[in-house]
Design a protein around this nucleic acid. Structure first.
Length: 283
DNA sequence: AACTATCTCAACCGCTTCTGT
DNA sequence: GACAGAAGCGGTTGAGATAGT
């Protein structure tokens, strides 16, 4: 099957919608419903292809669309759902009332994806990136001398050490959330609008994140609701403040190299039964 | 103030899937 | 089952906004 022929029609208007066109479309749908999008454009006196009308309605004009910034909660849900569903934006959107697949996709590509990359997490697999080029880049971003990534830098700040030396601590400028006693998502809540700083800007003291303090998903919780311990149960702002009040002290490095959250997380993602459980639940 | 770089997001493109005949 | 058209979806683009120099 190819494209819908309507989009190839000569003389059909493209580009941004005018207020007048919006009003025509809203008015028509309110009176008659959308029905067939191809015929709608003609009946509503819109010189647009049906696809364009459908997109304009579903992504912008629909009355139930929620506009404005994504909340922290929505951000967490998107990350968690993406870890299970991948780039199935429409399926992710189905779990976020009022948000469109296009909006979520844009938010992911312009915001979340960058944050994950900055954290050394592959946004496609949600696993730590370990490829050499990435670590070189990360190392350079931290202000390291490009030709000696393991040398001219405080060893505790070197991303190579994170993955190669078996430490549980990730060094970053992002003020992440880590505090015993609170429940954390399977994916660490590394992100907070307006709170993170660009890692490349450098600084006198880097925050240290101890992934071993984070909590993994538990089987009991899975049965309780749709998105059980995937989502943090308490606001992260307070945690951030707590961290600040602790004078940004470095958390201790767990000496056990075999018990990182990344390990557990990877294990979780690799686990066939877990994957199929979530896919079945969400799809 | 002027210019450039970067970011955001609405809209488009083209492919796949669904549905009716 | 085969086919055609419509709908849905995900990737990409580009104009406008904003930030930085």
């Amino acid at each position: 099957m190819g494209r819908s022929p309507c989009c190839d029609e000569i003389g059909v208007k493209k580009g941004p919608w005018t207020q007048e066109e919006d009003e025509k479309l809203i008015d028509y749908i309110n009176k008659h419903g959308h029905g067939n999008w191809g015929t709608l454009s003609k009946r509503a006196d819109l010189n647009r292809c049906g696809k364009s009308c459908r997109l304009r309605w579903t992504n912008y004009l629909r009355p139930d669309i929620k506009r404005g910034k994504f909340t922290d909660e929505e951000e967490r849900v998107i990350i968690n759902l993406h870890s299970v569903l991948g780039n199935k934006w429409s399926k992710i959107a189905a779990h976020l009332p009022g948000r469109t697949d296009n909006e979520i996709k844009n938010f992911w590509n312009t915001n979340i994806r960058k944050k994950l990359l900055k954290m050394g997490i592959d946004p496609e697999t949600h696993k730590p990136r370990t490829d050499y080029n990435h670590l070189m880049n990360l190392s350079n971003l931290l202000g390291n001398y490009p030709y000696n990534p393991l040398g001219n830098i405080n060893p505790s700040l070197n991303p190579f050490n994170l993955f190669l030396n078996g430490t549980n601590t990730i060094q970053t400028k992002d003020p992440l959330v880590l505090n015993g006693g609170e429940e954390y998502a399977m994916i660490p809540n590394l992100y907070s609008q307006g709170q993170s700083e660009d890692i490349s800007k450098g600084g006198s003291s880097l925050e240290s994140i101890d992934y071993s303090k984070m909590r993994n998903i538990s089987c009991e919780n899975q049965e309780e609701n749709l998105l059980p311990s995937l989502v943090a149960s308490s606001p992260r702002i307070s945690t951030f403040k707590q961290m600040e009040s602790c004078n940004k002290a470095q958390m201790s490095i767990d000496e056990s190299p075999s018990n990182t959250t990344f390990d557990d997380w990877e294990k979780f993602l690799d686990d066939e039964s877990n994957g199929s459980y979530w896919k079945e639940l969400l799809e």
